[in-house]
Amino acid sequence: MRNKSLDAVKAIAACLVVCIHVSFPGQVGQLVKVLARCAVPFFFMVSGYFCYYQNCNASKRILSKILHIMKLFAVSVVFYFIWECFMKAWNGERVWTWIKGLVST
């Protein structure tokens, strides 16, 4: 059975992780970053808890999670590649030159 309260806390932790990467001005911004740093280990602990249900085979569950993460990764790489190509074209830069720079050594 899924623990809805842990899902809510995980969502809050995910928002705090985003706050780490957003620049807030002044001393308040530094305080937000310091307080949000606890979210990363907590987020991973809660995620690990969801990997180990009592009624499920752990190795099967972990393989399922890895495949799910790989799918999300592939979709995000394609999305951000298309986004970056669009932004380069929008700014008047040459997209093919940028792509050649990515794949050349």
Rank of each mutant, 00 (worst) to 15 (best):
S76T: 03
Q30W: 08
R61G: 01
V18E: 11
L63I: 06
I12R: 08
N91V: 07
Q54N: 12
V22G: 11
V75N: 08
C51R: 11
G29I: 02
G26M: 04
E93F: 13
A11P: 00
V22L: 15
L31Q: 08
W83C: 12
V40E: 10
A8R: 13
C38G: 09
K71T: 14
Q27C: 03
V77H: 02
M45R: 11
W83Q: 12
M70D: 08
K10Y: 01
C85F: 02
I69R: 01
S47Y: 03
K33M: 14
V18K: 14
G26L: 04
M87F: 14
L63C: 04
A36K: 01
Y80K: 04
V78F: 14
V46K: 07
H21Q: 14
R61P: 00
V40L: 12
M70I: 11
D7W: 01
L63T: 03
K60Q: 05
N57E: 06
A14F: 09
K33C: 10
F50K: 01
S59P: 02
P41F: 03
P41Y: 09
V32F: 06
I69M: 04
P25F: 06
L35M: 15
N91F: 10
F44S: 03
F50G: 00
A8C: 12
S76M: 09
Y49V: 11
E84V: 05
D7R: 03
F42R: 12
C85H: 03
E84C: 06
H21V: 14
F44G: 02
G26A: 09
Q27V: 13
W90D: 10
L35G: 06
M70R: 13
G92Q: 08
M45D: 09
W83N: 09
C19F: 02
V75A: 11
A13N: 10
V32Q: 00
N57Q: 06
Y53E: 14
V34L: 12
L72A: 08
W83F: 13
K88I: 15
Q30E: 15
Q54C: 09
Y80W: 15
C51Q: 08
Y52R: 02
K65Q: 13
Y80E: 11
F73L: 05
G92I: 07
W90H: 11
